[in-house]
């Protein structure tokens, strides 16, 4: 499975990663940071990583097991 890491010190809670993810892997949960809820659905497209304006997400794409 791909490893999605969110740096909470950088995240401002804008929700763009949730909006750009084509697979509903992420969700906004209170208090404000996005959370990884369906890691198994991640296709490793890195849209969340590339489009995060605050460099707060990295996706490590693992080869399919």
């Amino acid at each position: 499975m791909n490893v999605i890491e969110i740096n909470e010190n950088r995240c401002k809670g804008c929700g763009l990663c949730v909006g750009f993810c084509p697979k509903d892997v992420l969700e906004m949960r209170l208090p404000r940071a996005p959370q990884v809820i369906r890691e198994d659905l991640c296709i490793g497209c890195k849209q969340c990583e590339l489009k995060c304006p605050d460099f707060a997400i990295t996706v490590e794409v693992k080869s399919h097991a």
Binding site: N9, R10, C11, K12, G13, C14, G15, L16, L50, K51, C52, P53, D54, F55, A56
Partner: peptide, 25 residues
């Protein structure tokens, strides 16, 4: 690319959701 950034000074002062962070990348 990321070595051109002052990573220790992030996050930027731009608002949550502002597109400028993308352009900086």
């Amino acid at each position: 690319w990321d070595e051109y950034l002052k990573k220790e000074r992030l996050p930027s002062f731009w608002c949550a959701g502002c597109g400028y962070g993308q352009v900086m990348r």
